[in-house]
Simulated scan of single mutants.
Amino acid sequence: MAKDIIKRAENGTYYFRANLGYNPATGKQIQKYKSGFKTKKEAKEEYSKLILSSAEELVADKESPTFKSFIEDIYLPWYKTQVKESTYKNRLKTVQKHFAFFYRKKVDEIEPIHVQAWQLKLAKEFSPNYVRIIQGMLCMAFDRAIILGLAKKNPSRMVGNIKSKKVKVDFWTLEEFQKVISLLYKGDYYEHYLFVSFWLLFMTGMRIGEASALQWEDIDFETGLLSITKTLYYKSMNEYKFVEPKTQASNRTIVIDEDTIRELKEWKEIQEKVLPDCGFVLSYSGIPTSKHTLPRALEKLAGLAGVHRIKIHALRHSHASLLISMGENPLIIKDRLGHEKIQTTLGTYGHLYPNSNFEVAKKLTGMLSYTPATHSIADYTSNQFTAEYHREVI
């Protein structure tokens, strides 16, 4: 016997919950709930009316979900499969915060004028480069909506992005870094850990995730080769894991200098006394330290040393700056840092070559020599040849 969809509430009124199928885009069940009917007949009439009259409206809803539904139920589950877990979690907050501007509209209702209003609003609060990143993410979402047939155009691409602004790379000079590193006392176990951590980052240019994932087995002390094959995704002291490096070029082998080899050997001996079975190079407790530990220590040390504060990633820039000051070839710097393209290296650090034109001019000086001629060309040729020569030149 069929189940009666009309129910009676405790107060004597009637209600129903109509199941209207599933949204093909989201896979979620579509339901409508109505209550407060005085008689069962009224409830049945309303139920029939809903089923018959709202069919077209429901189909339209299926074809064009709200932007909120599209992002949360369709786009983000797909996007999660396309990027690293750490990237997804970092981008998720950005999406939820900034895409909410469009959430009440349906996907196909969003026009270029709406995107432009959103873009101008963001430009008042954030840097141009940050706005460009967010709008790039919006473009990607609309591209996906077009592929799925939920939109016919990409209003974000139609509007275009705002002009980028060259960001000055922050770094420490060799002298500034030496002021900071000299404050650490290697006789203290924890300070020795900080010392070798900052030293390694400054002298190799590794990303903090790459350095955090570094194992002792990744270092060949005989040849000085250091292999970078992974990076560390850190959520908490109980939840961390190795993941693939940022790009294919990030998988690399670099040669470390003899001073760094000596410092690493010394730290390994000290660490083994406290943690005999520790595989992590940069660890004082057997597990990777909190992602806030080194940045906070670096900030405090900068204040004590009287140098400007930098972020932990700026030690990577400091390494590149050091190599440039040594006159190293940009291609070598590219490979050492793990950049995929030389344009990335030159685009990031090109401004650190302020006197390159002067250096070129110095090198060109004296390359050519000229011994003054004692006779004119006319003395060696006929007047007819000279006339033809001048005509050709003119």
Rank of each mutant, 00 (worst) to 15 (best):
Ser54Ala: 08
Ala55Asn: 10
Ala55Ile: 12
Glu56Lys: 12
Glu56Pro: 01
Glu56Asp: 14
Glu57Leu: 09
Leu58Ile: 15
Ala60His: 10
Pro65Val: 00
Pro65Glu: 00
Thr66Val: 09
Phe67Gln: 07
Lys68Ile: 00
Ser69Val: 11
Ser69Tyr: 04
Ile71Lys: 03
Glu72Pro: 01
Asp73Gly: 03
Asp73Ala: 08
Tyr75Gly: 04
Leu76Ile: 10
Trp78Tyr: 12
Trp78Arg: 13
Trp78Ser: 10
Trp78Asn: 09
Trp78Cys: 05
Tyr79Cys: 00
Gln82Ser: 10
Val83Tyr: 11
Val83Asp: 11
Val83Gln: 08
Glu85Asp: 13
Tyr88Trp: 11
Tyr88Cys: 05
Lys89Met: 15
Asn90Thr: 15
Arg91Trp: 07
Arg91Lys: 14
Leu92Thr: 03
Leu92Cys: 03
Lys93Trp: 13
Thr94Asn: 10
Lys97Ala: 08
Lys97Gln: 13
His98Gln: 06
His98Thr: 05
Ala100Ser: 14
Phe101Arg: 06
Phe101Asn: 01
Tyr103Gly: 00
Arg104Asn: 14
Lys105Phe: 14
Lys105Leu: 13
Asp108Cys: 08
Asp108Asn: 15
Glu109Met: 08
Ile110Glu: 08
Ile113Gln: 15
His114Asn: 14
His114Glu: 11
Val115Ser: 11
Val115Asp: 09
Val115Met: 10
Gln116Ala: 09
Ala117Lys: 14
Trp118Leu: 02
Trp118Glu: 02
Leu120Val: 12
Leu122Gly: 01
Ala123Ile: 05
Pro128Phe: 05
Pro128Tyr: 08
Pro128Trp: 09
Tyr130Trp: 08
Val131Leu: 06
Ile134Ser: 00
Met137Pro: 00
Met137Ala: 00
Met137His: 07
Leu138Gly: 03
Leu138Cys: 06
Leu138His: 05
Leu138Asp: 06
Cys139Phe: 02
Met140Lys: 12
Ala141Met: 08
Ala141Tyr: 07
Ala141His: 07
Phe142Gln: 00
Asp143Met: 05
Asp143Ile: 02
Arg144Glu: 12
Ile146Phe: 06
Ile146Glu: 06
Gly149Met: 00
Leu150Ile: 14
Leu150Phe: 12
Ala151Ser: 15
Lys152Thr: 15
Lys153Gly: 03
